[in-house]
Write a protein that binds this DNA or RNA. Structure first.
Lengths: 281, 281
DNA sequence: TGTCAAAATGTAGTAAACTTTCAGAAATTC
DNA sequence: GAATTTCTGAAAGTTTACTACATTTTGACA
């Protein structure tokens, strides 16, 4: 449970409230979000009491009036204590669960940011800048990350493709040439085909950039490694927030590459943005 | 640069507002704290205009009424601003640029978290729970977001598909049936085909959930709206960090839906996770 | 420059909101 | 069991949010 200032205040005053006022307090504690947007009439009806009683409740918890209750409640609800991640369980209320998911996502980005300085971004940029073509490979959720990244990189004018299944990845690796870059995204890095593909591509003189678990076969075979720790999904409800971090990492890589590519790339970006603006996304 | 969800929304819309409405916007931006607690009369007096003008301003920035402005503003003001984003320029060093991109991503998630309580998640869950099938539509970067979301939702056992081009979206809308849900993702909401699709689908009794700019044709046609502010890309280098927020939003929606769907859905999730674990991602 | 349509703005009115007053009911005290 | 205090809601008073409509302003075009 999160610590909300206003709600805690109410909880503490709960015992010394009169029965009717107590009902109001209880309802507010149980439905803080609804209470924040409710009107005096709605709230009094919900608590089976009269409007003045609700108002007296407000005064008693130290507020100037009913209107202030709404303000304090929205304040309390949108003020996170920290983004410490706890797993979602089946007993969580919907709004609790949502906040937990969100916090986990934020935390994973914060973690990524902290580790960014030790990532081989400069090396990757140097390699990507000379690339004849870039292929991004990933399965499942990572496939979507690869697709998103491809959609960014191609705007720099570099031939770019997405590979979302193992046969295609293997085929690409088998015919790769020098200056081709294969970016492989894998959560655990344990699909044996990925390591094979990395070996094949490297043997043909191509470069393999892996964004994966550092303790894996794929990580060992890759030319450049972006280490991403494996987050064990302790709860079945938790979506993989690590993919958000991967997306952000690729964003960062893209921007670094765009900057390194100078005016020509900047022009291409301008042109491609204008093309969209003339329509509307 | 954008710190606050609501305030940034107002700032972005500032240029296309009429003079009087512009004065209101300016005053709100300059005195957000006061504006959050103000009454309609106070605000209109302060901006030397009439009450309806203030109200029109509220509608135009995507709010339901004046009361909502107060709520959104207190929300915006009470969330901590840490990851201050500045735009990436061509003179930035590579490492500076990377951190800026990362900060922008984190900030967009924080903003999304702050605005989450006012999103129609519960309504959406109720609708999705009864859905015969879910189709997620989006173009360009939004298409990848749609794909990612589809990849999550189908695990709950709901027939699910991704639509990444306008003809397909229109066709789906044209043959949609009651209890079909069409989720449309659009950055600006200004592709006329999206609004048409929404209208078509609604006419056939299907439900349209839009994740888009609240000031758009699509937003008006949708049955359920998740308002997302349009972030103008002031710099050609800046990637759209809003899509990360959209991903996280869909994560939240997914978890809420999973929880609401009870044991049967939980079982499906367990089974699908096990299927992967026996291999390796 | 004049005409007209569209946009912008304000006036006036209304329904609903918030707040206060007051009197009766319930609990407590003596 | 009467007196006192506390609790409660009906009703009335004020303010607020919103709507409909009228007026003004703007801008396009002849």
């Amino acid at each position: 449970m999160y610590f909300y200032y206003m709600l805690e205040q109410i909880r503490q005053l709960l015992p010394q409230l009169s029965p009717s006022e107590g009902r109001v307090a209880q309802w507010v504690l149980n439905h803080p979000k609804e209470a924040a947007g409710a009107t005096l009439a709605m709230l009094s009806r919900e608590c089976k009491t009269s409007e003045p009683t609700v108002l007296r409740f407000c005064k008693r918890v130290g507020l100037g009036g009913f209107r202030e209750l709404g303000i304090r409640l929205t304040e309390a609800l949108s003020n996170p204590l920290s983004y410490v991640h706890r797993d979602v369980g089946p007993d969580d209320s919907s709004s609790d669960a949502i906040l937990k998911v969100m916090d986990a996502s934020i935390q994973s980005l914060i973690d990524m940011r902290a580790g960014l300085s030790s990532m081989p971004i400069d090396r990757s940029v140097a390699i990507l800048k000379k690339a004849r073509q870039i292929a991004l490979g990933g399965l499942g959720a990572s496939g979507h990350v690869a697709g998103d990244a491809c959609h960014k990189f191609f705007r720099l004018g570099i031939p770019c493709s997405t590979l979302v299944d193992t046969p295609t990845i293997l085929q690409f690796a088998a015919i790769a040439e020098a200056n081709d870059v294969l970016v492989l995204l894998s959560h655990t890095g344990r699909w044996p085909e990925f390591a094979t593909a990395a070996r094949l591509a490297t043997a043909r003189g191509a470069t393999v950039i892996a964004i994966t678990n550092p303790d894996s076969e794929l990580a060992r075979e890759a030319s450049v490694l972006f280490p991403c720790p494996v987050i064990e999904d302790t709860s079945i409800y938790t979506p993989m927030s690590s993919r958000l971090a991967q997306l952000a990492l690729l964003d960062a890589l893209y921007v670094a590459l765009a900057l390194a590519s100078g005016e020509q790339a900047a022009d291409r970006l301008r042109i491609s943005k204008d093309a969209l603006r003339r329509q509307a996304v």
